[in-house]
Design a protein around this nucleic acid. Sequence first.
DNA 1: GTGAAAAAGCGTAGGGGTTGCACAGTTTCG
DNA 2: CGAAACTGTGCAACCCCTACGCTTTTTCAC
Lengths: 237, 237
Amino acid sequence: MTEDHGELPPGLALSWGVLPVQRRGPKPALSIEQIVATGIEFGDRDGFEAISLQRIAAHLGVTTNAMYRYVRSKEELIVLVNDKAVGLPPELPEGWRPAAIAWVDAQVKLYAERPWLLDVPIRGAPVTPNQLRWVEAMLTALSATGLSQHDNLGCLLLLSGYVRNYASLARQLGSSADAPVQAEQVGRFLVPRLIEGGYPTLTSVYLNQEYEDGLDDDLEFGLARILDGIDVLIAKR
Amino acid sequence: MTEDHGELPPGLALSWGVLPVQRRGPKPALSIEQIVATGIEFGDRDGFEAISLQRIAAHLGVTTNAMYRYVRSKEELIVLVNDKAVGLPPELPEGWRPAAIAWVDAQVKLYAERPWLLDVPIRGAPVTPNQLRWVEAMLTALSATGLSQHDNLGCLLLLSGYVRNYASLARQLGSSADAPVQAEQVGRFLVPRLIEGGYPTLTSVYLNQEYEDGLDDDLEFGLARILDGIDVLIAKR
DNA sequence: GTGAAAAAGCGTAGGGGTTGCACAGTTTCG
DNA sequence: CGAAACTGTGCAACCCCTACGCTTTTTCAC
């Protein structure tokens, strides 16, 4: 009955709570939950870079190497931390369009709270439990459109990519209070070169100072484009 | 006449060819061009991780520290390598829609040739010359839509985000010849847990094996959605 | 119970990587 | 012809991840 899952991607088994059975030897001083929780703590406080086996080990009063009794590699740790940190999706409202908006908003909020999630490298299609909860939620909402499953997957990809992109842009523009100062300095440097270098459209964008305003509008804008596009598809089929 | 650009983001000045003037002392043994070219070489051969000051220095027959005479930090190097590697955009056809498709295709091709570009962390809005060439090209194409500059920027963000996302998905699915084997193993592990864990929609997706087929179709699919969405907007205004 | 097996944790070690500082050599300006 | 400025180098510190071997602890089997 002991399943033999051979070579699974790092973190897959652990994220689903499948631990290697142990029979003899001292009880582990730590638990995976503890380790993962510490990782999240560090991420929240000091960013993605701060999530290191070394630091976690030190914080838990253990040597770095002891970590490798629990986790096969740093990558595995990251996968676990990531899945735990994304948490569960919210309840979505009725109707695919409101649902999509709510889903996107929730992710934007999540990324705003834990910007370091954007630094987690994407290794493959989502396979961990919480990530799949999000996928499941949106997919069931989309099933009301009457589109094929394949189309729904395409829409999902579209939406999740959009959120991620928006969030990562919002982060870098929003953070650092000196952003406006910096931006102005960059503009002073850039504009003459744009003019001389043959970037007419960009020059006018810069001169109209279109680069700065309303990021919230942008979220809504792009999302509206995507949803309208999906609507067109629905009408077509 | 010597401009004093104070604190500019790393790589900005250098990417535009503004070098700190030198008046005395030995001539540099290396040039920035050489260093950047070596970086690209390593990236192409062994991926993003392989781009390190240490390796480049060794390859050029210099100590690691000598690099810091040319580049203020690794981050600066990465910015330069990135801009050089993205190169120039292609000539775009007439009409905003064909232009957008060509632009997207070109980027997909670029990311297929240099997948490691997807690993370059995005630090901020594009400011380096080649990156801005791409922006400029798409922006001028979009100006034919009659939308506002602000709307055009939103569309651009939408498109570039979409490409990036698609490319990063395509990479991880396409690479590694054992991907199908791996995928099957993952499926065997995952499906029972999806059934038990309350993921009905995903379960059916997995059982229908929707997860595997045509990635090329997906590119076209999402792009069509976005362009349709933009079309709706144009009609509305 | 008691001994052996298994597993945990530690120490040591090594291999990468980025960066700072003091030093010696080279070029060019005054 | 100095002296200033800038070069590359060596040394060193500091992170990070990971492998190996050893000691200690626990538990199973007898």
